[in-house]
Amino acid sequence: MELRDIEIFLVLAEELHFGRTAERLHITPSRVSHVIKKAERRIGAPLFARTSRTVDLTPLGERLRDNLLPAHQRIQQAVDQAVAEARGITGTLRVGYSTPWCADLLLKAAETFRARYAACTVQIQEIQLNDPHGPLRRGDLDLQLSELPVAEPGITVGPTVLSDSRALLVPAGHPFAQRENVTMEDLADIPLIIPGGLPDYMTAVHLPTHTPSGRPIPRGPVFTYWAEVLSLAAAGLGAFPVSVRGERYFARPGVAFVPFLDAPPVEYGLLWPTAGHTPRAMAFADLLTDLTDF
């Protein structure tokens, strides 16, 4: 079997569907059928049991898959490594994130990236809200996944990778905590906890000063690190708009997460230094966007 024929067999063994296999490999279903029939003629026995509704591996097909898959993976890794070295995808890639859910996606991407580009390592680190773009601007990071919008000189904004609805983190004893949802107008009735060092244009989007009808939104205490927000809210000192995903990561006694009815979504995008983008950073960015279903 030729290498391309082996790939078609292995994808069909995974998908068990001629149409999906053809779509995934960018070929026609008839091409898939032709390759499998040719392989079965050469081997002398069926590899797949086909009906009008199902496709299943025969026991012989299962054994062939199990024997071919490790070798095919090693061949692909060798090719990927050669391509990576030729394109300069080597060395250490430093990637920053602002939230745990961004970290989860980056860690998943890093695992695949390391397997694909063995000559490149990935270091992932958290960035702080009080200095959201400093590490990137100083050259401490090659790539960053964090909240949008971003309008910083010397920083390029890449694709949006994640999007999520907003919720309001409130003290558990506040009347809002008993409600099913809140609106942007409700922000006039509770002070917002404010991060120090956030650019004004980001504050205007995420922590507005007035409600849609023009009512002022009171300001609460200023924080430096995220853990302070949870403590300040639990103490009844204010609220903070967050991603709805935040409840899964930050739920604790003393606070509640109440979804917004009308707030715009929180969007997270890729950022990199305009003058310092590298082949490894762009390869990681491409992989990351392929992993998300946004």
Rank of each mutant, 00 (worst) to 15 (best):
S213V: 13
T58V: 00
E267D: 12
L57V: 01
V170T: 00
H133S: 13
P265R: 11
L271W: 01
N181G: 07
H72P: 10
S243D: 14
R219L: 07
R50W: 03
A239K: 07
L261P: 03
H133M: 13
A119R: 00
I155N: 13
S243Y: 14
L47R: 04
D56C: 06
P216G: 03
E147V: 06
T54D: 00
T160Q: 14
R179K: 06
Q76P: 05
T209A: 14
V242R: 06
C102F: 02
W272D: 09
M184K: 09
L237R: 13
L148H: 14
L3M: 08
A239P: 05
T28R: 08
G197R: 03
D286G: 05
E85N: 13
L287M: 02
F260T: 10
D56Y: 12
V79K: 15
R114C: 09
G88Q: 01
E15A: 10
F260V: 14
R42Y: 06
I193Q: 04
S163H: 05
A151L: 15
R65M: 13
I194C: 04
V258W: 08
E147M: 03
A263M: 12
L136Q: 15
G88H: 03
N67H: 09
T209K: 11
G173A: 06
S213Q: 15
R53C: 00
P221Y: 05
P149C: 06
E62Y: 07
L69Y: 12
V205Y: 11
V258H: 11
L136S: 11
P279A: 04
P175I: 07
V35L: 02
S33E: 00
A13P: 00
G254I: 04
P264S: 05
F223C: 08
V150S: 15
H206Y: 15
E111V: 14
G254A: 09
T28N: 12
P171D: 10
Y249D: 13
R24F: 15
H277M: 09
F284L: 04
K37T: 09
M1Q: 01
V242P: 03
T224Y: 12
P159D: 08
L12E: 07
L136E: 14
L68S: 02
T203A: 04
G220N: 01
L187M: 09
V222F: 02
L93N: 08
S213L: 11
V244I: 07
I127Y: 12
V32H: 02
C120P: 03
W226N: 15
Q81T: 15
T211P: 06
F176H: 12
R42K: 10
P218N: 08
Q73W: 15
Y249C: 11
F294R: 14
P171T: 13
P135H: 10
H174V: 00
D186Y: 02
P264Y: 05
A256P: 08
N67F: 05
A275V: 04
K37Q: 04
P273F: 05
A71F: 04
D80Q: 05
R166V: 03
L12P: 06
P29R: 09
L237A: 07
A263Y: 09
L136D: 15
P191L: 08
R41F: 06
A84M: 00
W226V: 13
M1W: 01
P259H: 09
E62I: 15
P241K: 14
L47T: 02
H72G: 09
K37Y: 05
T209Q: 11
L230P: 07
D186M: 03
S163W: 03
A233P: 05
A110S: 14
A172T: 02
